[in-house]
């Protein structure tokens, strides 16, 4: 080849038109419809984003009150007697903790009991109810519990705790190709960083408590970033299942909390908004029993 075109708009267009003209996909629509007929729609229970913020505080307050009452009811009879071997109840905090084994997302649900992390730093113990959670991952910087999926559900609902060490420099525009920088701030600063780096407003984080410590909480219906973020999602931290902006409308709760000089990010999400209340309540049952070793 001895000569080339000066690159002009018409060249780009001609090349793209030539590529597009090969698009003849016979039977594609029929294939789509066949697949559609075996794929149920997601239930539409998404709260409009504009309504999320006003109701979030009220909802959270109600849940906190309900949880406090529930915890009081559940724990009161457990004072004194040894831990119940009944699989439908969590072991008491005094029980000997079992080492958690990371079994992957599709592992068997954990039996009821008290567990301790093996690799996660800082280490901690926690209770689970029977058949509620799958101990998916325990690595130094992430604990991931997948909510045991109902029959037929393929989405991953989860509770994860991540030790913040690095965050992406440009999480939306470049994603995982943007490089990371060490995280040096505290819990509040993390949400300030998010507000600066996210392409949309996630709203104002609210003060809360986590593990009995002051914390900052953000609860959102995920915005649609599918076309504005690299790879269709926005990884924030460089570890674990990224704290993605999953499907538009997907409910997610982020809580940042400083434990022993480290910032931990606790995230709960449900792929099906209809399961959000159930997943969040179950996650809070676990989180309320967390005790750090030091």
């Amino acid at each position: 080849m001895t000569m080339r075109l000066r690159l002009q708009d018409g060249d780009i267009r001609a090349m793209l038109v030539a590529r597009a003209q090969r698009a003849a996909f016979p039977g594609l629509l029929a294939d789509v419809i066949r697949e559609v007929q075996t794929n149920p729609m997601r239930r539409s229970s998404i709260v409009p984003r504009s309504l999320v913020a006003p109701f979030a505080a009220t909802l959270a307050a109600g849940i906190v009150i309900a949880l406090v009452a529930l915890v009081a009811l559940v724990r009161a009879p457990q004072v004194g007697p040894p831990p119940s071997p009944t699989p439908s109840h969590a072991a008491s905090p005094a029980a000997t903790a079992t080492a958690m084994l990371g079994v992957g997302l599709d592992g068997a649900p954990m039996p009821a009991g008290r567990y301790h992390t093996v690799f996660f730093q800082p280490p901690f113990e926690f209770d689970v109810l029977a058949n509620r959670w799958i101990g998916a991952q325990d690595i130094p910087r992430q604990l991931l519990l997948r909510a045991a999926p109902p029959q037929g559900q393929s989405g991953v609902d989860a509770l994860t705790i991540v030790h913040l060490e690095n965050v992406y420099v440009d999480p939306c525009a470049k994603g995982i190709d943007g490089g990371t920088q060490p995280w040096s701030g505290d819990a509040t600063a993390f949400f300030d960083w998010l507000a600066t780096n996210a392409p949309v407003s996630f709203g104002t984080p609210q003060p809360t408590t986590q593990f009995g410590l002051p914390a900052v909480r953000l609860e959102v219906a995920q915005p649609d970033l599918s076309s504005s973020c690299s790879l269709g999602y926005m990884p924030i931290t460089d570890v674990g299942r990224p704290f993605t902006t999953g499907l538009p409308g997907q409910p997610t709760r982020y809580v940042a909390v400083d434990v022993g000089g480290q910032t931990l990010l606790v995230t709960i999400w449900a792929t099906d908004p209809a399961r959000w209340d159930e997943v969040r309540s179950a996650a809070d049952e676990v989180l309320d029993t967390v005790e750090f070793s030091n």
Binding site: A20, F25, L28, M41
Partner: peptide, 29 residues
């Protein structure tokens, strides 16, 4: 659109099919 972006007919077909099925699933939202 998919073929122009991707360049491979098989992959482009997959992309369209995946997108249409996802659209169906998410349409209530």
């Amino acid at each position: 659109f998919a073929l122009a972006v991707i360049g491979d007919e098989h992959d482009a077909r997959d992309a369209v099919q995946t997108a249409c099925v996802q659209a169906w699933r998410e349409l209530p939202a």
